[in-house]
Design a protein around this nucleic acid. Structure first.
Lengths: 268, 268
DNA sequence: GGATTTTTGTGAGCTATATCACATTCAGAT
DNA sequence: ATCTGAATGTGATATAGCTCACAAAAATCC
C-alpha cells in the first residue's frame, strides 16, 4: 500500500526513469517480477483484442517511439488521485486496482483494470489531476507515455484519437454503472448480487447454468467495491450460502441459483 | 415527464424530422417556445467559451452541414437510458436534466447540463445504449447530429475528435465526483453540504464571504441528486437554517457560514 | 380570487447496516 | 511443525435515514 516509486521501476537497463531521459529503443529486455515482457507493440499478439492497441501501422510505429515499457511488482502505485497527470499507462499484463479514497482512509474500489485498458487517460487528456489511484495487484507490464508526447501523438494520429474517445466512452459507461449501483440500490445485498453477476459475465461463464467465479478479492476489498463494511459482506455471503444461492470451494465461487441472484440484483 | 416526441420538435419548416430526411440549409428560423434561435454556429457569439464548439473554420463548416438546429419545450425528453444511440445533442441554450432511473421509479439526477455541453456523446461514440435520460428543464435550443454523420465528421476532423476526447474526459471527471459523493460520504448532510458548495463555485459566488445560490430545484430533485429522500433534505435544510449556516429568501439561498459548511462537507 | 396542485414541514416507528469486540480459521514464513 | 499476521465468522448495540401519514404553505390555474 506504500507508494512504490514508479520512477525507479522500469526494466530499462540504462537506469533512465520512465517519463524522463532520452528515448532509446532496442535495449535489453529482462523479466523482472516473473513477467514475460512483451517487447514491442508491433509484434504483440494480443493487439487485435484490445480497443486502444489495435492501431494502424503508422500510428503503432509512432507510439513505439514514445512509449516506455515498464514493469511493476504487485502493490506498486502507478499514480495517486490528486496528482498532476504525468501521462498514460497502457496496461499490457496484470491487473490494476482503481480506487478513490476519502480523507479518513475509507476507500472505494471503482474497478479492477484488465490488460488493454489505458489508465490515467482522462486526466492526461484534460490536464486535470488524476481522479483515481491506480495500484497493481499483480506483477504488471505497462507502457508509459509522457503527457506531452501523448498529446502530440494524438494530434498527429487521428486514428488513435478516435480510439481514445472510444476508451473514454467506455470508462464513462463504467462510471455510470458504478453510480447506478451506488445510488439506486436499496440494500447491500442488491449491490453484491449485481457485482457477482457482473463478474460472472466477464469470463464467458455467464451463459452456463451454474457459472463459476474466481474470487480474487478479500471480503474487505469486495466491501470497498460496493461501498459497505467488511462484516456486512461476510454476513451476506453466509446468507447466500445458507440459501443455496452460491457455494464456495476454495477461492472459486459457484453460482447455484442464478435466477435468485438476479432477483436479488433487481428487486433488492 | 411524459416522453415528448423530439422527432416532431424541430424548427425546420419543411417538416423533416431531425435525424431523417435530406439536409437543407437556409430555412426559415422561428422562435418557438420563446427562444431566440442561434441560427448558425459560424456566427454564434458564445462559441469561444464552449469546449466543443470552438472548432476551426473548416470543421465548423463541416459541422454546419450535418447539424439540425432544433428547439424543445420545457419537459421534453431528448433521449432515454437504454435507447440505441441516434446521435449527439449539442446544448446551445437552456438546461437539461441528466438522470438515471431504477425499475421501481427511483431516480438519481447526475447533473444539470448547461449550454455548451454535448449530450449523448459517449453512447454515440461507443454505439452502446444511452446510459442516461436527458430531459429539458427550460425551453432549449439544441443542435442534433445523426450518429453516422457525426462519426464520419470525427474521422475527417481530427481537431473535433480531440475536443470530443476532452468533453468525454470532462464527463468522466464529473462521474467520478458523483461516485465519490455517493460512495464515500458518511451522511446525507455531508452530501448536501458538498452539493451546495459545488453550486456556489459554479457561479463565481464562491469567492465571496457569503455566497448566494439560486435554488432552481425542489427538495425532491435535490434529494435525487444526492441519493436520499425528500424528507431528509427538508430536515437537513431546516437544521442548516437553525444553525445559522444558511438562510433563504425566496428562491435564493445565502450561505452565511461557509466554513461550517465546508466542515460538514469533509468531516460529515 | 378562490381552487387545485405542488411543494414544504414535521412527527413516529422500523430496519438495514455501521461499529465494536471478539473468536476462529487460513496462509505464508521460518 | 510452529509461529504470526491476515482474513473470516459472529454476536450485541446504536443510529441514520427511510417510510408512512398527515398539516401547512406556496405556487399555478381558471
Amino acid at each position: 500500500m506504500a507508494e512504490w516509486q514508479p520512477d525507479t521501476g522500469g526494466v530499462r537497463q540504462d537506469g533512465a526513469a520512465p517519463g524522463s531521459g532520452p528515448h532509446h529503443r532496442g535495449w535489453l529486455v529482462l523479466s523482472p517480477y516473473g513477467l514475460d515482457i512483451i517487447e514491442s507493440c508491433l509484434t504483440c499478439k494480443m493487439r487485435a483484442d484490445r480497443i486502444f492497441c489495435d492501431l494502424n501501422t503508422a500510428a503503432l510505429q509512432a507510439f513505439e517511439t514514445i512509449k516506455y515499457a515498464t514493469a511493476y511488482p504487485k502493490g506498486a502505485v502507478l499514480f495517486v488521485e490528486g496528482q498532476a497527470p504525468r501521462g498514460i499507462f497502457v496496461l499490457c499484463k496484470g491487473r490494476v486496482k482503481l480506487s478513490i479514497c476519502a480523507t479518513d482512509g475509507k476507500t472505494l474500489i471503482l474497478k479492477i483494470a484488465e490488460p488493454g485498458e489505458v489508465l490515467g487517460l482522462s486526466a492526461t487528456v484534460s490536464g486535470k489531476p488524476y481522479e483515481l489511484t491506480a495500484e497493481t495487484i499483480d506483477p504488471c507490464q505497462v507502457n508509459f507515455v509522457k503527457r506531452e508526447d501523448f498529446l502530440r501523438f494524438l494530434k498527429e494520429n487521428s486514428d488513435a484519437c478516435f480510439k481514445v474517445a472510444e476508451q473514454l466512452s467506455d470508462k464513462y459507461n463504467n462510471a455510470c454503472h458504478e453510480v447506478r449501483s451506488l445510488g439506486l440500490s436499496h440494500s447491500a445485498g442488491e449491490k453484491l448480487a449485481k457485482l457477482l453477476l457482473e463478474w460472472s459475465s466477464r469470463n464467458g461463464e455467464s451463459q452456463k447454468a451454474e457459472p463459476r467465479i474466481k474470487l480474487a478479492l478479500t471480503h474487505e476489498e469486495i466491501a470497498q467495491m460496493i461501498g459497505t463494511s467488511r462484516e456486512t459482506v461476510t454476513r451476506l455471503f453466509a446468507d447466500l450460502k445458507k440459501r443455496q444461492i452460491v457455494q464456495s470451494k476454495g477461492s472459486t465461487l459457484l453460482i447455484r441459483n442464478k435466477a435468485a441472484l438476479k432477483t436479488l440484483a433487481t428487486n433488492g
